[in-house]
């Protein structure tokens, strides 16, 4: 089955590859036309990188900070062991869910 699906995947990919290679026109631009410019000035390749702090993590930090603040206000009494209780509850639920999945819900 895996081999047949792989065949079914690679054959169309090969046809698309032939189309791509035969139909495209080779690039004619050369030299400074391919260089990187920003605000009219030439930039080094290394300067084009965006720091990870500004990318992926910025989004998640924003999402989780809001969630964390909501949790702090609503479910935390101020006693540190609250987090321990929540962790145990969540792990117990995870074990329950896994056992349901493994046993197929008792069927």
């Amino acid at each position: 089955m895996v081999l047949l699906v792989s065949l079914g995947m690679l054959l169309p990919a090969a046809i698309f590859a032939i189309m791509y290679l035969k139909m495209r026109r080779p690039a004619e631009v050369e030299g400074d036309k391919k260089w990187i410019y920003a605000c009219g000035e030439y930039w080094e390749l290394e300067r084009m990188a965006v720091s990870p702090q500004s990318l992926f993590w910025a989004v998640w930090r924003k999402v989780f900070v809001r969630l964390y603040n909501a949790l702090i206000e609503k479910v935390h009494s101020g006693v540190p062991s609250d987090w321990l209780i929540y962790m145990i509850i969540i792990l117990a639920l995870a074990v329950l869910a896994l056992s349901i999945v493994v046993t197929g819900g008792g069927s």
Binding site: M19, M23, R24, R25, A27, W35, I36, L45
Partner: peptide, 11 residues
């Protein structure tokens, strides 16, 4: 689009 120039920027 398939018949156009295939340009890759530096890097």
């Amino acid at each position: 689009l398939m018949g156009k120039e295939d340009i890759d920027v530096v890097g």
